[in-house]
């Protein structure tokens, strides 16, 4: 299990990185950030990039910042940077909750938020987060940059809208209302394992009814997605047991589950329902704690 040979590039600034990437793009040049998914694939010889452009030495790609009602997560922000809330309010707490579900402690020291989006594993917690919250991906090549909504950025399992000469410089997440509530539930075999199903939900209570509902499902289908129909069902409702159950039932029925030898389709569909229920209850209870 040794990676195949490749040429290594370590640019010191973004311009240099994009220049190199434009030159090596046609030879399967890839960005190396955390490497926690790419390197195992290379060790198993499932990936053979001819060039790796290591961006770890580019200072401008460090950090997480608030800019105009958005949280800007730059390319070198590691999972571990979210262990403590990266921003005050519900978003920071939610990201901390999600971060603790990602792999294990040492992996979180290296793996990056933006790298998770570039990798686009169906079981990625950050892909689900970006899609559910309506985040966008900042993609850049030598000729310029563009902002791609997360929902369209992720096109399939391990497939994104990123062009070969483009890299993710940041992901932008809108900062929700200070009184919004969130819930997250992931089912996996052991802590840190790939999700078999997960649900992320966020809404703003008005009186005791839900508005601005966002509900996303990950780990269960080829790509994470919001379930608009379920969001509509929930909008204007109180979070009663009955509402929770019918939302879960609807969500489960809408899913086209992934199948693998250890996870039958009907089981995964069921887990989606369970995840929706448990995420909604977590959101409800997060309100009660205040």
């Amino acid at each position: 299990m040794k990676p195949a040979p490749f040429t290594y590039h370590r640019p010191g600034n973004l311009e240099e990185a994009l220049d190199i990437l434009s030159q090596v793009a046609h030879e399967d040049g890839r960005i190396l950030a955390g490497g926690q998914s790419l390197v195992p694939m290379m060790a198993l010889r499932l990936a053979f990039p001819a060039h790796l452009v290591d961006i770890n030495d580019i200072p401008s790609l460090q950090g997480i910042e608030v800019e105009q009602q958005s949280l800007v997560i730059r390319a070198l922000a590691r999972h571990a940077h979210f262990h403590q809330p990266a921003v005050s309010g519900p978003l920071g707490s939610m990201l901390a909750t999600v971060a603790h579900s990602i792999a294990h402690y040492p992996i979180r020291q290296r793996g990056t938020f933006c790298g998770s989006l570039a990798h686009a594993d169906p079981a990625s917690e950050w892909c689900l987060t970006a899609v559910t919250l309506g985040g966008s991906v900042m993609a850049q090549n030598r000729n310029g940059s563009r902002e791609i909504p997360a929902g369209t950025f992720i096109q399939g399992p391990m497939t994104t809208a990123l062009e070969a000469d483009e890299m993710i410089t940041a992901v932008r997440l809108p900062i929700p209302d200070a009184d919004s509530r969130f819930g997250f539930y992931e089912f996996n075999r052991r802590a840190g394992d790939f999700a078999l199903a997960m649900c992320q939900v966020m809404f703003t209570p008005e009186e005791d009814r839900m508005t601005g509902v966002r509900l996303g499902i990950g780990g269960a289908e080829e790509v994470p997605r919001r379930l608009g129909e379920v969001e509509e069902m929930l909008t204007g409702q109180r979070l009663t047991e009955k509402v929770i159950l019918s939302a879960a039932e609807r969500a489960a029925s809408m899913i086209t589950p992934l199948e693998d030898i250890q996870t039958p389709v009907e089981y995964r569909r069921h887990l989606v329902g369970t995840s929706v229920r448990r995420a909604l209850k977590a959101a409800r209870d997060s309100g009660n704690e205040r």
Partner: peptide, 13 residues
């Protein structure tokens, strides 16, 4: 200062 997997980093890094 961070615990990392030495099999998931290239030495040049």
């Amino acid at each position: 200062g961070a615990p990392v997997r030495a099999c998931l980093m290239f030495a040049v890094q």
